[in-house]
Amino acid sequence: MTDPNAIDADGAADERDEDATDDEPDGDLPRGVVDEVERLTRLERTAVDDNEIEAYERRREELLENHDFTSRIRDDDGDDVLVCHPEEWHDDEAGVIRTDRIEDIDRAVEIPLEGTEDPDDWAAVDDRNRDLVAAVREAHGDVHGDNAALLADFAGNHYAKPIASLTADELAEFREEYLVRNAWPSEKQREVIAESIELVFEATGESAPTVGSQ
């Protein structure tokens, strides 16, 4: 069965590609490009149709090539990490990264692709998280809904896990690091982020974990 997202690769995905170039940069890559590259990689890993897999891989390569970047999967103690780095670092003939060509290691972007405890079916996990976002938005308005969407991005993209499975430490990382470095929420969003987190967990039927509760 063909995943509708694969068809979208030639339709709505074009709009995502255009939007991606307007976001804040992550190294030399706009944040939107990083997010889309990650999304395509996760879809590629869960797809079963060869045509879908090729479509996701091709679009990812095109996005990166537009910024003179390439990517590879690195095994990090058994967990796969997507590494995006400038093409100029790569020695095509030797098939390796030339360390003498690396002038600023921060230009590379590393994206963990696997959570440690939860199922690796990222698409299904993301769908559940997006359902929570929709429920919070409908019940509590757009500001809380936007915060819920940021939390869903964090849970799915960084840990490949349901929001309800986030630990107190991971929620602290979300508030203290992810929001500051990656999300750029509005002032209204920042003012109510703690309440938004509580509302998201309330929608799951759970209480948000606190330090010492794990």
Results as ranks from 00 to 15, higher is better:
I7C: 02
I97L: 15
L171F: 08
R181P: 00
H67C: 09
D75F: 07
A135F: 03
E176P: 00
L166G: 11
N129R: 10
V34I: 11
K161T: 15
V200Y: 06
E18D: 13
N129E: 13
R175M: 10
L199A: 05
E15W: 10
G156M: 02
T204N: 11
R72S: 09
D22R: 11
A149G: 12
D17E: 13
V81D: 02
P30H: 06
A124I: 03
G212Y: 04
C84E: 04
A139N: 10
F154H: 15
N66L: 07
P30E: 05
P25R: 12
V125R: 04
D68R: 14
D120H: 12
A139I: 05
P209Y: 03
L64A: 11
E198K: 05
E24I: 02
D22G: 01
T2V: 15
D49H: 07
E18R: 15
V83A: 07
A134K: 14
H90S: 03
L40Q: 01
E62S: 08
A172I: 01
A135M: 10
E57R: 14
N157C: 01
L150N: 11
A124L: 04
R130M: 14
E87G: 03
E187C: 03
T41W: 02
D146Y: 11
H140R: 12
D80W: 12
V48T: 14
F174T: 08
D80F: 00
E61T: 06
A149W: 09
R190S: 15
T70V: 09
A155V: 08
E103W: 05
A9Q: 08
E191I: 04
A168P: 06
R190A: 10
W89D: 09
E24S: 08
E87P: 00
D19F: 08
T204E: 13
D3F: 02
A160N: 12
L166T: 08
A135L: 09
L171E: 01
A55I: 07
L199W: 01
E173A: 11
R107T: 09
S213V: 11
L166W: 09
E110T: 12
D26Y: 08
A9M: 11
R137M: 04
L43W: 13
G27P: 06
L199I: 06
N157D: 12
H140D: 15
L132E: 11
T167K: 13
D106L: 06
E206W: 06
A183F: 03
N147Q: 14
D75C: 05
F174A: 14
H144I: 00
T41L: 06
D22T: 12
G156H: 02
I193L: 03
M1L: 00
D14R: 15
E117T: 15
P185A: 02
G212K: 03
L113M: 14
V192I: 14
R175D: 13
R16D: 10
D23L: 08
V33L: 02
N157Y: 07
V37F: 12
A12R: 12
D169I: 04
G145K: 05
H67Y: 15
L82F: 01
T167G: 15
A134M: 11
K188E: 15
C84Q: 01
E18C: 08
G32R: 08
E170W: 06
V125G: 03
A139W: 05
I97M: 12
R72D: 12
M1C: 04
